[in-house]
Design a binder for these strands. Structure first.
Lengths: 206, 206
DNA sequence: ATACCTATCGAACGATCGTTAGGTTACCGG
DNA sequence: CCGGTAACCTAACGATCGTTCGATAGGTAT
């Protein structure tokens, strides 16, 4: 199984990691523009000026969150897909990984989707490039399945976007103490998606 | 077919509608907290103070956008569902309407989802109540289909959330001049979703 | 002891925030 | 021609914004 926890090995993190974690929580809850540097500092029991020892600006904090999250997401996806064989199993692994990531690392995932618009143009370009790579993996999986006669997908680009929207939505409502555990949710989502792309499904006109 | 255009009949709108339209665009692009009242006024070629003749506060502008959008959304959905017969046709109509709404009124739909967190607690409560009603319609459609033996859905609540996430995602990427027209997208989404809930789909274990 | 580096602090900068008070214009019914 | 009202204006309020400056405490190496 791929790693889902953040990359910090030790119990208490480096100062910059503490900042990023607190910022992720606040950006998730109130948004980037809705969170002041003073509020972030107060949560960390620091003075405002101290933050600027670790990060040159508020914008760089946001970028660091998104950049790390996208790296982990893309890296984990490639691992998960590489560990599976066959088009259907690969798609199952990809969907499962995506859902688990969005459940376990809900705040980071949510911020990474909701605060794209708060990025500086240069930062946005870099983040979007990684997100496109991520989407390309899913398109590749669908295309492979279609070529292999396992899937029936009329429009690969559209279907990939639909699948990702659906799975990413988990980050909007998932709650740790909720009715369903991440693994259970992932299992359901895998079934829903595999059904919808399976060759043996019903045709376009009933 | 249900009405998808905003309720303003005349070519040039009332002042408050002009404000709401401009605010929707800005809130969609930069977010609520990322949009200043002065920016909104400049776009409208008004002075800042003039806005306060039409709305008592910035917060009320946001609420008006979300409240109207949710009303239109819920009203249109009920119309669309009522015009169809049978569980599958009703679900098709609901999905189609939802996708068309999120394509045609992309900005309002996007703001209604992304700026929930910027609402005052009291306003949030009212908006969430309407959103829950909306989701209940979809749950009801799925439940009816399961009872009627048309659908096979192991978890209605989860599936409804998944379907709505998927369709709502259209508002994130839809572009008016894009490759696919709203009707084409809606058609694809209907097929994807109907396939995934159809009784005759593959079982949970291949 | 001295020099240095890391991490923090108090205090303040100019800019911008949402909002308000009070005045001005244009039109409309009588 | 007049009173009233709708729609807008200029100007400013106190608060908060992101950021910077210079100082300081504690640890480590020389």
């Amino acid at each position: 199984m791929a790693t889902l926890a953040p990359a910090t090995p030790k119990g208490d993190a480096v100062a910059s990691d503490r900042i990023l974690r607190a910022a992720t929580g606040l950006f998730c809850e109130r948004g980037y523009h809705g969170t002041s540097v003073r509020t972030l500092a107060r949560v960390l029991r620091l003075e405002t000026a101290s933050l600027y020892y670790h990060f040159p600006s508020k914008q760089e904090i946001l970028f660091a969150i998104l950049d790390r999250t996208l790296d982990d997401l893309l890296d984990g996806l490639r691992r998960a897909v590489a560990a599976a064989d066959g088009a259907e199993q690969r798609l199952r692994a990809a969907v499962r990984y995506h859902v688990l990531f969005h459940a376990h690392r809900r705040q980071e995932a949510f911020v990474s989707h909701s605060e794209l618009r708060s990025l500086t143009p240069g930062h946005l370009r870099r983040v979007v490039a990684k997100r496109d790579q991520y989407e390309d993996v899913f398109r590749g999986l669908l295309t492979a399945g279609v070529r292999g006669g396992v899937f029936q997908v009329p429009d690969v680009k559209l279907t990939a976007a639909a699948i990702l929207s659906m799975c990413t939505g988990v980050a909007l409502w998932f709650s740790e103490g909720g009715r369903l555990a991440p693994e259970a949710i992932a299992g359901r989502y895998v079934e829903i998606i595999v059904r919808s792309v399976d060759r043996r499904g019903k045709g376009p006109r009933s």
